[in-house]
Amino acid sequence: MNIPELRDHLCAIHPDLCPLFSIEFGDGVLSVPCEKLYDAAADLRELGFDRLGMVTAVDHGTEFEMVYRLHSRSMSAAIFLKCGVSRDEPRVRSLVDLWPAALWQEREAYDMFGIEFEGHPDLRRILLPEGWEGFPLRKDYCDDRVVRRPDYI
């Protein structure tokens, strides 16, 4: 199923999600408000998006953007689900109930960005050792041990 077909399909079933849908670089993107994220994900799962491919976040300076990539084998289509999270209180509902695949991937997002996932059963650091200070993929992360690369370009 190509992206415009996917949009029509989505609009027919969930008209409230329709205005949030856009196409960027050939990918379908559904940008939702943070509080609606779980419901939108549940709707998409009902629709046939059975695999949660990727969970990550991007630090945009003013806020974090959560990025989820869902994939459907039956429709052979993929869609991005995005939502903005406040940087002061990064909190978002966990999708572990919908896809257990989120279990480790959300832990990784917590480890790297410090985003709290509500309802995650085992939210602790995964890649970095326990007791590490700070969240390294944030743009304002400071570590005296890092040697900055000289700017040759």
Binding site: G53, D59, R69, A101, W104
Partner: peptide, 13 residues
């Protein structure tokens, strides 16, 4: 930002 969606990570879970 670069993010690598690693299959081995998901499989090891």
């Amino acid at each position: 930002r670069m993010k690598v969606r690693s299959p081995a990570f998901c499989n090891l879970a």
